[in-house]
Amino acid sequence: MSDAAAHAIEHPTTTGIDSRKVAIWTLIGSECLLFASLISTYLVYKGKSLVGPLPHTESQCMLHGKMQACEPIFSIPLVTFGTAVLLFSSFFVVLALYGAQKGNRKMLITWLSATVVCGLFFIGMQVYEFSHFYHEGLGYTTNLFASTFYTLTGFHGSHVTVGVIWLATLLVMAIRGKLPAGKSLNLEIAALYWHFVDVVWIVIFPVVYLMR
């Protein structure tokens, strides 16, 4: 984690920004195209599913071994709640970073814990949602909507998982007193990644859930 920072002692960077911070922004820029590919696929396949269940409309679908009418599958209240939790986790992690930079360990640990809890909650929401859909007859391969939806939100979910593990690792370091103000950059880059995961959801939520 301290490759470039140690470099910087001898070799101040050209931009004045730590190389790790430039790197995480580079990665974020690159990941825009990853999610663009997933979102475009979701959108060009919208309405092309051969069978149900469908997200917003009633449809014919195979359930319990026979074709039957199915309700729209999305539950907007549940996912709105998950969205709010993820948004607040972004708020919490900036507070944690603020604490870390000011050397306020208590603030750091409190808000970083809150962030991790929010992240776990979001993952829980997604697991619940997926298993609910599955019981409603929407398996991964049921139709194009299912495959594109699960792949898109699954990719996002795996990013959330990586973020939670990353932040939890930093939380353990913080609790052990190994994240002093001078090392707050460690948290800053993790937080940038976390915010990116959040803004991706800011796009997914309306585009996937709220547009019919």
């Binding site: 430039v22 974020i28 690159s30 825009c32 663009a36």
Partner: peptide
């Protein structure tokens, strides 16, 4: 500003591709 550029141009490209 360099960091904004690292984000905004890929973002525009992503939006254009979609």
């Amino acid at each position: 500003k360099v960091l904004t550029n690292l984000f905004i141009w890929p973002l525009l490209l992503a939006a254009t591709v979609i």
